[in-house]
Amino acid sequence: MKILAKRPKGLTDARLTYCPGCLHGVAHRIIGEAMEELDIVEKTIGIAPVGCSVFAYNFFACDMIQVPHGRAPAVATGMRRAQPDCVVFTYQGDGDLAAIGTAETVHAANRNENISIFFINNAIYGMTGGQMAPTTLPNMRATTAPYGRDVADMGYPMRVCEMLATLETPYYIERVSLLSPKDILKAKKAVKKALKYNKEKKGFCLVEMVSTCPTNWGLDPLASIDWAKKNMLPVFPVGVFKDEAKRQEASK
């Protein structure tokens, strides 16, 4: 019998607790695979946020910690200073990273901390039940924006990659999506690149993954993917915003 698919070594055997159609599982898997392929499961520390992925400490097979809402980049800073030879990654949603944790994110990037941030952007607060996120689209409905996000009142969705790319120091910033098999392969490449850069102690890496939330968007999984392609990608275009390795190569 030939094995066609198996769990990567970067993940545990625990059953994922995410909703049907949720893409957190995909994101977990590509991170798990990347850790296995880079042979860094034993030297990696993962940081679980507050949000749907709060239980991520059960799912990744590396050392794990669960931390206060938004503070993952600060905790990662302390860790990578204490264990400079480890690879440290945070796994954060849009509320955790771009609302309550904005300061920690920006400053960790600006210090070029040797950490990876995997940022799942689905434009909504999932765990607390569908409230507005900093990345919620204009006119998109949320339980705390029941008439749709009024940009005159609540501002425009924040583009984290674009914002961080204005900083001098961060090493690598890319936005990918999880909206098709091809996109997922690209996402995996980006995740692996980030972890590889960390293994090589290059500096701050952030990979934003445009994702979905079928439950809180009130759509079935396939419809939510179509919706995200149509509405999210124009606001959050995929692409490499910063890659110091590439830049240095080009300037040679």
Partner: peptide
């Protein structure tokens, strides 16, 4: 490390302490 806030500073302590230092 001069942190960006006291909130960040205590969480850096949390991270470092979790690593056993």
């Amino acid at each position: 490390l001069q942190a960006e806030s006291e909130v960040a500073a205590i969480n850096m302590v949390l991270g470092a302490a979790a690593c056993g230092v």
